[in-house]
Design a binder for these strands. Structure first.
Lengths: 229, 229
DNA sequence: AAGTGGTCTAGACCACGTC
DNA sequence: ACGTGGTCTAGACCACTTT
């Protein structure tokens, strides 16, 4: 990491912060100072400090200067992999079964997230397998207003999620993670016992301002989602 | 969002990608082309496209040009808030109780993550409350090799986590999310029924290459961790 | 060898927040 | 009013990857 690039300077300043050269919350030198110290232009220092701000190491305010973040807020890049990748990366064979596929009026909880009001939407239930053993159970509502093509789509080997991701880019989404207790039906599908604790993910995605799909995924017991901070 | 700033151009190009102007995987115009089209310098376009690359919309290669990402990889910034903030943001009063604090030899699972071998470490059990109702139960091992000050630290009103975060900056960490079933003891502490499904977070943090602390948090039933993609 | 992105510079002006 | 960060520009050179 050469020291006069914006990446190098970013790393250098981060190291100095971690080493405790400045107190938490304390003002660090301004862009001009660093520029002189590192023998580069202010523009380069600016890039480095902006990156440190994005990554949560410092806080910047015009006129207020740049401060070390009081509580170094831990934030993580969480990559949510496709189930297929998740399974295949662990060396197992992926397969999925569509158990239910129909058009119906969504229940209130799903309708609220889809924002479709009284309209009908596509409903799917999918069971995902790893090496022919149940891995996760998915229920999903898809707005036919946003994705009319879905009505006639042949999924083939693709999961609905894969089909959507290849067909409809989305602009934003929301994820909620929680724990749920397996009911009788889901316990049967996942081949586990009733009252098992299931790691659960809800996800809703939008294309611009139109909700596209909302889904819930129950993983088999023992699943953990791991990631670095 | 004015159109000639790097932010504006970033938004404009993202909108064009989302609108489907280019196929997935397709080459989009080069920096010079965009610069001419938007009437700005190449530097500005470069910033915009670099940001789009970071956010996962495009892939860039020297000489290879810039392409729309084939599968728009969903990645999220997950902010893991301090429990205190989490509770107080919802308008409730935060309090925590240290139930156990002693020095002991960690069990194998914790020793592996702490990498302390046979050495003793500090062990804590903490119960976190929101409006005097149990909110989460924490067990934590702290390496006394990495944080000798902890042996004599007065926590007072602070949780161990807050004390650590103010005293020892960390450079990296690992988080694992899962679901667990409440055993008898934890069910009692959290004032819930046995076999309830608990959202669970394991976290280990390092200062440079020295493990600092490893902890497990069981949230009361019904808790969800939400974040945007 | 050539073309694309990656980066630096020096100077300039602007926007925001504090004083 | 002033000082800080935010951004733009024009030109330059470099680095990587493909042809």
């Amino acid at each position: 990491m050469n020291a006069r690039t914006h990446r190098g300077i970013r790393a250098a300043i981060r190291a100095r912060i971690v080493a405790g050269e400045w107190q938490l919350g304390e003002l660090i030198p301004g862009e001009a100072d660093f520029a002189q110290e590192y023998g580069c232009s202010r523009t380069t220092v600016n890039r480095a400090l902006q990156a440190l701000a994005e990554e949560g190491m410092v806080e910047r305010k015009r006129k207020g200067g740049t401060r070390v973040r009081p509580l170094p807020l831990p934030q993580a890049q969480l990559r949510i992999p496709l189930l297929r990748e998740q399974v295949e990366e662990s060396g197992r064979a992926y397969r999925c079964d569509t158990i239910v596929r129909r058009v119906a009026r969504p229940p209130q909880s799903a309708a609220e997230r889809l924002g479709t009001g009284e309209t009908e939407a596509a409903y799917l239930e999918t069971l995902h397998f790893a090496d022919e053993r149940p891995f996760a159970f998915e229920t999903r509502w898809i707005s036919l207003a946003a994705v009319p093509q879905f009505a006639e789509a042949e999924l083939g080997e693709l999961s609905a999620n894969e089909w959507l991701v290849r067909t409809v880019p989305f602009t934003r989404g929301e994820v909620a993670l929680s724990a749920a207790t397996a009911g009788e039906r889901i316990a049967g599908l996942l081949d586990t016992q009733q009252d098992a604790a299931l790691f659960t993910m809800d996800r809703t995605t939008w294309l611009e301002d139109r909700p596209v799909t909302t889904m819930r995924l129950h993983y088999t017991p023992g699943y953990t989602l791991e990631f670095p901070i």
